[in-house]
């Protein structure tokens, strides 16, 4: 067992555990905090996979901005105590489906005729500064148009959020 695999397994356990924690917590605040942990774990995966920029974006945008927004809304609405679970019978079908999906995925990956290959050790193969530079060039060269479209999308989302949040009186 290499150090990579060890790290992977540990982080995998953490991410699955925090995901389940988010799913099962009765308190929405706990759920949000579990999700923050989960996002952090995934960010470490990104680092391991040689994507430091995405990892940082994950931490700042997701774990930072978005989850803070979530927590803010939860606090604002005071909906922490909404019961998480209904009676168990209702969960049978989704649970079965979920299990089936996981089994299918595993079967798909293990029975693949061609091995999908291994991930090289990022610390050996990736020059972080170089990777950042390449990513930037790619983003502002080949993917410039989608990038600009994304800015418009964000603008539209912002306008939408403002319109939705306006008091109803103003709407009339």
């Amino acid at each position: 067992m290499t150090i990579d695999l060890f790290l992977f397994l540990v982080l995998a356990l953490v991410s699955i555990g925090t995901a389940l924690g988010m799913l099962l917590s009765r308190n929405a605040v706990y759920s949000a905090l579990f999700l923050v942990l989960n996002l952090g774990a995934v960010a470490i995966f990104f680092l391991l996979l040689g994507a430091p920029f995405i990892a940082m974006a994950q931490i700042t945008v997701y774990a930072g901005a978005i989850m803070v927004l979530f927590l803010f809304v939860i606090m604002l609405l005071g909906t922490e105590e909404i019961p998480g679970m209904q009676n168990w019978k209702k969960f049978i079908i989704p649970a079965v489906l979920a299990g089936a999906l996981i089994l299918e995925s595993i079967y798909l990956l293990t029975s693949a005729s061609r091995p999908l290959g291994l991930i090289a050790n990022p610390s050996e193969s990736v020059n972080t500064a170089q990777a950042m530079r390449d990513l930037g060039e790619l983003l502002f060269d080949q993917y410039l148009l989608p990038f600009e479209v994304t800015s418009i999308l964000l603008l539209v989302a912002m306008v939408g959020a403002i319109v939705l949040s306006k008091p109803e009186k103003a709407g009339k």
Binding site: D4, A12, L49, L109, P115
Partner: peptide, 8 residues
Amino acid sequence: MVPLNYYI
């Protein structure tokens, strides 16, 4: 060296 399958 972690197999890609694990990640997936």
